[in-house]
Write a protein that binds this DNA or RNA. Structure first.
Lengths: 145, 145
DNA sequence: CCTATATCAGTAGTACTGATATTA
DNA sequence: CTAATATCAGTACTACTGATATAG
């Protein structure tokens, strides 16, 4: 690897691609009242992977105050609501609203279209290889997936 | 590509890796008073690729007010200074300070180490392939490099 | 008049650290 | 007393849109 040719440094290229995906994703999701950080939260709740703030923060690997902020926005926008956990009064159980249920499919479709756009011109075999590379990079960076 | 297995969607993996690189990069650069958006600016100035706000914004593909903000931070932190362009009084020519000259090598080394960490376990041939993939993705996303 | 450059004001999103109240 | 959960307060970075002043 040549340290001086920025255009061939993997981490530079990764950062650029990730930023573009974030930016485009934000724009695409904005009409639905969602953001790139909040959509995975809704999906996780819908799939039953977590239903309180602490579990969501652990699952999505952000600090609890960051998750609290994301949840605050989702609640502000009417996409989730909280109810006390009867078995543990420290816990607020988080649930999707009707509105979120309605918007989730469209949101996922929008992100999927972004993915297809990013991967235009790749063969299935290339995508396989690429995904494997990306999983290794994520593992190297401490992102358990 | 399977739309439901998030862990194998390239754009998801790219976003995650990019975010981790940004986060780690911010932490690494903070002691030097730099951020992930400001370092490329300093490098571009040093290489003589641009020396005013409008050209820098075009080069790094952000809007002018975003670049103005980044430059404001760099000036606040004593890493750049501006002087009027004698040939065009609308233009402020931006130059690196001594401090920036001193810190730039260390900053680039820190980011390089992050890159090596991300690519641990990859052969040279794999890196070549990966870089080519990433350049194609960036081109698909409209990131000219 | 139109364009380019720079800047100001306001908004938004992501994410952090540190501190605090409540409850188990 | 300690740990877990949630929240508050403050900060920082990236980046946007819209409006404005100045100069070519």
């Amino acid at each position: 690897m040549n340290r001086d040719d920025v255009k061939r440094i993997p981490s530079f290229l990764l950062k650029r691609a990730g930023q573009a995906l974030m930016r485009d994703g934000e724009v695409a999701l904005r009409p639905l009242g969602l953001g790139m950080a909040s959509l995975p939260v809704l999906v996780a709740i819908k799939k039953g992977l977590a239903n309180n703030q602490a579990d969501l923060a652990r699952l999505l690997q952000v600090e609890q105050p960051s998750m609290a902020q994301t949840l605050g926005r989702l609640q502000r926008d009417g996409l989730i609501w909280r109810r006390p956990d009867p078995s543990n009064r420290r816990v607020q159980i988080i649930e999707l609203t009707e509105l979120a249920q309605e918007r989730l499919p469209a949101a996922r479709t929008l992100l999927w279209e972004g993915n297809l756009r990013a991967m235009a011109g790749f063969s299935e075999a290339e995508i396989e290889t690429f995904v494997d590379f990306l999983q290794r990079v994520n593992a190297n960076l401490g992102n358990d997936l």
